[in-house]
């Protein structure tokens, strides 16, 4: 993401803003901080920029995070959320960008937790792509992390951590570039890697979907993030598919259409750059899988026998001749 270089006049403004921002901080600076990056920047109409939500957790061990972030709807439009490269691996709720209220909310977790260290560098929670709306005059607006945000310790008791919340301020100018900045497109262009390998599992759970056969899956993508998952269930006969792949978008867990598990199941994760990783599951074979082979074997055996007898007959005729 490239921000435009600030003029001297604007540098003074930004410095003022920064001091103002600091004045919002609590008297005691807490060890853990959650902040956005860039904290201060300037964009023009129609630019698409990335706001990264980061944290410095110092020496704490954390495992679950809820971030509620408000943005000025009069100047910004939330476009996308990317978990690419995030410390958070599991997302129990869909990420919600509310462009009417100007709120982005996400909840994520780290199985087994993550412990930082005093020298630890920042960690990334997520990235939000905003598009700058048209303004008439130079406008300064804040993005704030709400008090409802929470970071929980990995202590088995879900103890909340007190943390410093540092928002950002943006200077929006009414000009428009010939080719507006599109940081989101840059991320997508650079992403050539498919999502991480994953291991989907078919399970029957009494507590989910009345115990129906369901597919559980999850993976991550370090660059642009996972966009969606697709599932295909192809009927099979004799181990081979007898119909075309029929992809449908799904979320984990998903109830399988074929509860008899007689299909070849394919699940693929697609990242926001369109890279895919597909996993194929062959449920255990049933007697039906062997029937075509048995029939084929019998037919071939019969055919061979018939050919053999025919040859024998020919030999006998030749012999007589």
């Amino acid at each position: 993401m490239k921000a435009r270089k600030l003029t001297k006049k604007n540098q003074i403004k930004v410095a003022t803003v920064f001091l103002l921002l600091l004045s919002f901080f609590p008297a005691k600076i807490l060890a853990v901080s959650v902040y956005v990056e860039p904290m201060v920047s300037q964009y023009q109409t129609d630019d698409v920029f990335i706001l990264e939500v980061k944290a410095n957790i110092k020496d704490q061990c954390v495992n679950a995070v809820r971030i509620d972030l408000v943005f000025p709807t009069e100047v910004l439009e939330g476009k996308y959320f990317s978990e690419g490269g995030s410390l958070l691996q599991l997302w129990p709720r869909p990420i919600h960008i509310d462009n009417e209220r100007g709120v982005v909310s996400f909840i994520g977790g780290i199985p087994g937790g993550h412990c930082g260290s005093i020298e630890d560098k920042e960690v990334l929670f997520g990235r939000i792509a905003f598009k700058v709306k048209k303004v008439r005059t130079i406008t300064e607006k804040d993005v704030r992390i709400l008090e409802s945000s929470r970071v929980l310790l990995d202590d088995g008791e879900a103890t909340p951590v007190e943390f410093t919340k540092i928002g950002g301020r943006f200077v929006i100018s009414p000009e428009r570039r010939d080719i507006p900045l599109d940081a989101w497109d840059e991320i997508k262009t650079k992403d050539k890697e498919p999502p991480a390998d994953f291991f989907p599992e078919i399970r029957q759970e009494e507590l989910l979907f009345d115990g129906k056969q369901s597919l559980f899956f999850s993976t991550t993508d370090d660059q642009s993030g996972i966009d969606y998952y697709e599932l295909s269930e192809q009927r099979r006969v004799g181990f081979f598919p007898v119909e075309r792949e029929n992809w449908r978008r799904v979320e984990s867990p998903v109830v399988l259409k074929d509860q008899q598990l007689r299909s070849i199941i394919k699940i693929r994760a697609v990242d926001r750059a369109g890279n895919k990783r597909t996993k194929v599951i062959h449920p255990s074979p049933g007697w039906q899988d062997f029937v075509p082979w048995i029939i084929a074997g019998l037919l071939l055996g019969g055919l061979l026998l018939w050919q053999f007898k025919k040859l024998e007959k020919l030999k006998n005729i030749n012999h007589k001749i």
């Binding site: 679950a64 199985p111 087994g112 310790l153």
Partner: peptide, 16 residues
């Protein structure tokens, strides 16, 4: 909610 989720994350992979 989040607190339950945090406890789940803490005990991930165990038999807790």
């Amino acid at each position: 909610g989040l607190s339950d989720f945090s406890i789940l994350m803490h005990y991930w992979g165990t038999g807790e």
